[in-house]
Computed example of a mutant assay.
Amino acid sequence: MAPKPDLTESFIALALQVTCHAVNRATTRQEASELMLETIKRLSEQIAASIAFIGADCRLILLPEYFLTGFPLGESIDEWAEKACLSMQGIEYEALSKIAQRHSIFLCGNAYELDPNFPGLYFQTCFIIDPTGSIVLRYRRLNSMFAPTPHDVWDKYLDIYGLEGVFPVAKTEIGNLAAVASDEILFPEVARCLTMRGAEIILHPTSEVYGKELAPKQAAKISRAVENMVYVVSANTAGIVNTPIPAASVDGGSKIIDYRGIVLTETGAGESMAAFAEIDLAALRRYRKRPGLNNLLARQRFELYAETYAQTKLYPPNTMLEGEIERKHFIKTQQEVIEKMGIGNGEWGMGNGNIIN
């Protein structure tokens, strides 16, 4: 295979829209692992064919959210950890690393992952594998409705990984890469913190409803690109099969948005490699250096907001440090937070002593 050209300042990124073959119906870990490896084999062929069509300057490929497994459907945390979660040095990562090496690409995806530092839990993890096959970024989802997050074990997580491990940015030959998972695109603080640490390209693996109307996530992708002056590469699933949920419920709309909020490419429904576009890092960096109204990064005054954030307490950290966790924990905690907010009493945001100290 001919060597890839050095395209540090300009290359092609692909948001590869593929079907998720869920493992929920697998009855053993071995059966689930075989399904995952079959998915990786299928992906290997699709990635090879996509690069052959797009060209050798395709250097970055993003896969959808939980593309190997789907999501839990009634499984307890322990059951899902046993059946569907990857080891940090597992055979699935090894197989994906070989794809990145074979094609000299940066390969990004999203999976449920075990961490030996936190027995009994798992994290939804975005990963980036570089052309040498090394994992150069692990981002654990910080806002999740039904999965453990670093915030739920906050003090211990910070002790082990530090704040750079909470908001990681990979400084690579194709720019500074970061990742945001699924509906975290709706949380502007996550993308902002990544940008403050140097992110130029935000990779967004997702599995979401897609339609003709401008849904909240679609609007948020454009907003995150504009306000942070970054490229947003978003890969959606082409449906999820092998579950009771209708397969096409989350299908279509993978896209790439530039730092001005312009949608460079977007695909419809079904498996597709049509969502590819040029990433022009030189142009992005020139844009960020240009004084004027549109340079939103250079106009930021973070001191204005820092004290209010520091004083505000809402969703509690460290709720999963001890004891067995059941799924009802998530709803119970959210109900307590809503009660604390006092929205029904008109107290939200009025410094009642529960939210703003």
Rank of each mutant, 00 (worst) to 15 (best):
L73N: 09
L73Y: 11
L73W: 10
E75Y: 09
S76C: 07
S76W: 09
I77K: 05
I77H: 01
E79H: 08
E79L: 11
A81H: 07
A81D: 13
A81M: 10
K83D: 04
A84V: 07
A84C: 09
L86H: 00
S87A: 14
M88W: 05
Q89W: 09
Q89E: 14
I91A: 13
E92D: 03
Y93P: 00
E94I: 07
A95M: 14
A95R: 15
L96Y: 02
S97L: 10
S97R: 13
S97V: 12
K98Y: 06
K98D: 10
K98W: 06
I99Y: 06
A100R: 06
Q101E: 14
R102H: 14
H103L: 08
H103P: 02
I105D: 03
I105H: 01
G109I: 00
A111H: 08
E113S: 04
L114A: 07
P116H: 10
N117H: 14
N117V: 04
N117L: 10
L121N: 04
L121Q: 06
Y122C: 07
F123M: 10
Q124E: 15
T125L: 05
C126V: 09
C126K: 01
F127E: 00
I129V: 13
P131S: 11
P131D: 09
P131N: 12
T132S: 15
G133W: 01
S134K: 14
